[in-house]
Design a protein around this nucleic acid. Structure first.
Lengths: 348, 348
DNA sequence: TGATGCGTTTGGAACGATCAAGGAGGGTCG
DNA sequence: CGACCCTCCTTGATCGTTCCAAACGCATCA
């Protein structure tokens, strides 16, 4: 017989049901779940048995109401652009779901308005639907970060606060310049001297950072950079055109690109001209997308350690939401280079 | 001065705060939010003003507790396998987030245990953390669906209940056979007669369905199928080997593949042999992944209408959770063929 | 014996919203 | 004039959990 007379059979058991069955008070059951150390061993065993018998799980809503926390982390989910090779999001989100789940959090996705980067955040925040946010897409400055900070909303950014070095929020990022340095060094060690760069327009902080990796590596080896660089939009067509122009005017034997998308553009041009990727001209991309992994003969690419990024993000989040909160600073992680056929003479 | 003496200044306003400011009762504010029709116009305006002034949003946890619903939809998020071209998940999830948000639901991601398809569901269900689930990954039968049905958990499946035609749950799927028929017909119309099929092993319901599209189209045109089909694992290497064998033994001039991954394998073989994709041999993939979009010279591929799938899924979900619930049957959507260079003689 | 202390358990009061009744005020009708 | 209805709004109870302070049993000690 259940606590409430007219109880529907399918309604899940409550704390009170367990308490009645175990012959203890509600609070004791609550303690058994949240602070088992407070109970005497035999009491704990008895309560535990009742919990198992009834298949009890604490009601999330009630717990959230009382503790003022939802154990949810908000993530604005914007899709990859069609026609680009960038499939970072999926890998990152998966790692994030895994890691945050282990820390007792779930990931809540909400849609983003491309025109208004802060849309959606406000509502979730005021309704206390999430405990914190993860802000991504910080490639062009970071309006979300500034907005969230002004709202005193807990959040961790994936991406440095490029335009505001004094920003107080925790962030995690990958050292793009170091990644491009790996790529450039790899090409130099393979015997290339005329190495071109195709990146994004100057306004992109990430693009300029990655480009700096190329510039500094070339200079440190006394190799030429003039006329070997190009700044374009993120699209296959842009990469294709840029490669054509560079090949005509600067005769590079290798290309380092700010993204796999641009690298695919280069491959298009090479294919058009009957040049063999890897043997005649080397190409290196960035992000180690699925495209890089499956395209013949394999695209050498800089791979971001997204699994580690997720781990650091969750670590920062736990600090932020802990009692007392632990402020963490920025974390910069090193990427690795995945070498494939596109930068090897034998094509493998 | 706020309702509660020791109130922390940063705590969000509650229904009672709004009620006090507007000079009405809590219930009236609640009605203003949920049933505006019940209020007189001037009262509504007054309450609305108070809501705006305070920046009030209903507390999610409290509402969830009282209404026994969370407005959350659970989605088990399993990542794409490394080394495959399949980037369906991201597109689908994005559409889902958009659509469900419009219907007042948010998407909650939880990790899946590859070995136990039902892991994770149970906890969310018992703690009433989500209102319903969306079950994907139903390629090999559907253990989740059976389990969820036995638990009387509300859910919609993306994928037909292949192994149980009598299943009572709503589902949405894409007609794979029709998609392959489009692809095969396209190749036949382009003049091909020896068209090979590379698909998955017999246990895959989806694989057999897609293969049936090829078989029936070839037969209806009196074209040969014997020796022209191959069943392999989902990997680039498998597709590559299968293509090599088929080229040697059956001399096809075109390939239809069960996935873009396999199609990329075919491209590898063609590249190895110095054959030009599109001009010498045509290739068609399935899923219209990012790979298909960016690889030179573009991979013709069958595109699933994932946006429409998301819409239908949410529609079914709304029926399921409505009062009274409206049972919906299965919905089968038609895919389209995206023609690119890999199936055109001029490469464009 | 009674006071003190400690480890364990308990009952009452929130958390902030909605549900289910009920009441004030005005109009209509017999 | 009173009964009745309708509209609009209010009051009290409730959802299931955790926080808080107090009480319990039991042992120790003066």
């Amino acid at each position: 017989m259940s606590r409430i007379p007219g109880r529907v059979p399918t309604a899940p058991p409550t704390l009170a049901d367990v308490a009645e069955l175990a012959g203890v008070s509600r609070q004791t059951v609550s303690n058994a779940v949240n602070n088992p150390d407070l109970l005497r061993a035999d009491t704990l065993a008895r309560v535990q048995e009742a919990i198992d018998d009834l298949g009890y799980s604490p009601n999330r809503a009630a717990r959230n109401l009382r503790t003022r926390s939802s154990q949810l982390i908000g993530l604005r989910f914007t899709p990859a652009q069609e026609g680009t090779a960038n499939s970072m999001v999926e890998r990152f989100v998966h790692s994030l779901v895994e890691t945050s789940s282990a820390a007792g959090y779930h990931v809540l996705l909400f849609p983003g308005d491309p025109d208004d980067p802060t849309a959606g955040y406000d509502d979730l925040l005021r309704s206390t639907a999430v405990d914190a946010f993860i802000a991504t897409d910080t490639y062009l400055g970071n309006p979300q970060a500034a907005w969230l900070e002004s709202r005193r909303a807990p959040f961790v950014a994936f991406g440095r606060p490029w335009d505001n070095p004094d920003a107080g929020h925790p962030w995690v990022d990958v050292d793009g310049a170091a990644g491009v340095e790996l790529a450039t060094t790899h090409l130099i060690d393979s015997g290339h001297t005329r190495i071109a760069w195709i990146g994004w327009r100057k306004e992109s902080f990430i693009g300029e950072d990655r480009r700096a990796g190329w510039t500094r590596t070339m200079r440190s080896r006394d190799l030429p950079t003039t006329g070997l660089a190009s700044r374009v939009e993120e699209s296959v067509a842009s990469g294709r055109e840029a490669a054509a122009v560079l090949l005509d005017e600067a005769k590079p034997t290798a290309f380092v690109c700010a993204s796999d998308t641009l690298a695919m553009g280069v491959m298009h041009t090479l294919t058009d001209r009957g040049l063999t990727v890897g043997r005649d001209v080397a190409v290196v991309g960035f992000d180690d997308s699925q495209v890089a992994q499956v395209v013949p003969p394999g695209l050498t690419s800089v791979r971001q350690p997204l699994e580690d990024v997720a781990i650091e993000v969750v670590r920062a989040l736990e600090g932020l939401l802990g009692h007392p909160p632990v402020e963490s600073k920025g974390v910069l992680l090193a990427p690795e280079l995945i070498v494939r056929g596109s930068s090897q003479a034998d094509g493998h």
